[in-house]
Design a protein around this nucleic acid. Structure first.
Lengths: 135, 135
DNA sequence: CTTTGTGCAAAGGCTTTGCATGCTT
DNA sequence: AAGCATGCAAAGCCTTTGCACAAAG
């Protein structure tokens, strides 16, 4: 609520937080908390599942991460890219392609404003079966 | 899989199914399964929660209902309108406006095909704060 | 009568939380 | 030294499933 400064304190620099941050920095697509946890474990980095959840939550609060909710109800995390874009996802293998189109952006905005809505966000997900999975 | 006819058998006509169907027919927005259950209970109609889930699942499979996943992870159900469209939702009061734009439809399709994706579906959600809540 | 639907309760998956301990500052 | 971060396990929520009984066709 403070106009100057977001009021969020800098988190402490721990091995676990660093590991989670690095993994998400290296990862391009969306990842679930559970997956972050097991990927770290596979890489030999032991981090408690609860800690993973807490780190991710803080990173989201800090604007470092973006989230979507999968159809299963799982929350998926992704590092925020500078520019807004959307995703084309293969529902079989999970391959993700980033899509960018200013047309859709302005459309969403226009529609919202036409109805008197402010502070507009939008989310577009296009799902299909990619060529490799289509056989 | 049968070319003529969808292959889905007509569900039996039960008090419970009727109740769920009627509630969704009367309801305009999105509702969770839990809410359907308690609304029915409030109306004096006792239907098991599991049954509510099963009815909803069948109605979705039959194309009678549309679903989205809320940020909480809950699945929300809504009766399907004949033509495909999207939603503009107020994140404060939940007011929902149906939006329809062929431009977005074809865009989604084109993008997907350009990347070799087949059997394409898409979902667009525009969220904002409506005029009444903007004060 | 046969088959499908229902109810209850248990189980399952993801996520959050309480509490004691360890590490950062 | 003081306080946030971590881990573990338990608890919470929504949803699904197994099984016996009831109802529909």
């Amino acid at each position: 609520m403070s106009p100057a400064g977001t009021g969020r304190r800098t988190p402490r620099r721990t091995r676990q937080r660093q590991a989670v941050a690095e993994l998400l920095a290296a990862h391009t697509g969306f990842v679930s908390a559970q997956r972050v946890h097991s990927l770290l474990a596979q890489g030999g980095v032991e981090v408690g599942l609860a800690t993973v959840y807490r780190c991710l939550a803080q990173m989201v609060a800090g604007g470092e991460l973006d989230t979507i909710v999968a159809e299963s109800g799982e929350v998926l995390y992704r590092r925020c890219s500078a520019d807004h874009h959307h995703h084309l996802v293969c529902r079989r293998c999970g391959t993700t392609v980033e899509v960018h189109d200013p047309h859709v952006e302005s459309w969403a905005h226009d529609v919202a404003r036409a109805h008197g809505f402010a502070d507009v966000h939008h989310r577009v997900e296009v799902m299909g079966v990619c060529r490799a999975c289509a056989h």
